[in-house]
Each structure stands twice: as C-alpha cells, then as structure tokens.
C-alpha cells in the first residue's frame, strides 16, 4: 500500500510542484491550503507524513504542529516543516514542537525527496 502524504501550504505554485514531485515518487498526495483544513484532513486521513508550511492562514504551522502532536491517534505520523523562515530560532522552535525535520525554502527537490523517503523508511 502506498504511503500517504499531506501537503499543507497556501502557496499554489509550491503546492503544484510538491504534488508533482511526490506523486512521481509514488506517494498518495493530499492537499490542504490552510492550517485548519490541514488539521481536519490529518485527523480524517491519518497520513504517514505531513509537509507543513509555517506561514499559513487561519492556523500557522507551529500551532498546527503542536495540535497534531497533542493528538495521540496521530503518533505515527511524521512531520516535516517547510519554511521560508530559516533562522536558528525558528528551526529549533519547530523541532522543539515535535517536528521530525525542518527544511528551509527554497529547497533542493532531490534532497527533499530523500528526506521524505528516509522519514517514511522507504
């Protein structure tokens, strides 16, 4: 069975590129364009991994990460944070809130794919 990945980002073009990239790798891809939608979809679909943008409307990535980690139904889900904000404090904040990895934008597509694979153990 294919691994399921949820993309949570409000930038349409980034979503398009990520979707394309992950589909090509053979993952099932879901999309959410704001924090609240992402939380609902994560609970319903229980994806194996979520790609989480920090700057999102309605609920930002940090809050969402915290909410996801508080939900023990989702303990198996991996979280990869993606952000244009690359300062030390933000990276450690994300990891401190329970993200498994933190990638700054712009990212190398190859490295991102490797990162996703290793998180999912494939």
């Amino acid at each position: 069975m294919n691994k399921k990945v949820l993309i949570a980002d409000d930038e349409p073009n980034i979503v398009i590129s990520l979707e394309f990239l992950l589909r090509r790798e053979g993952f099932d891809v879901l999309v959410a364009v704001d924090g609240e939608e992402a939380l609902v979809k994560a609970r319903e679909e229980k994806p194996d991994l979520i790609l989480l943008d920090v700057m999102m409307p309605k609920m930002n990535g940090f809050d969402l990460c915290q909410a996801l980690r508080a939900d023990h139904d989702l303990d198996d889900m991996r979280i990869l944070m993606l952000s244009a904000k690359g300062r030390e404090t933000e990276v450690s904040k994300g990891l401190g809130l329970g993200a498994d990895a933190y990638v700054t934008k712009p990212f190398s597509t190859k490295e991102l794919v490797l990162q996703v694979r290793s998180l999912l153990g494939v």
Partner: peptide, 13 residues
C-alpha cells in the same frame, strides 16, 4: 524566498 522556491522546484523538476 517564496517565489524563489517555486522557481527552483519547477526548474529542477
């Protein structure tokens, strides 16, 4: 960085 991200991702692909 936001538009840059899209540009880089598309060109790499």
């Amino acid at each position: 960085r936001t538009p840059l991200t899209s540009i880089r991702a598309f060109t790499e692909m």
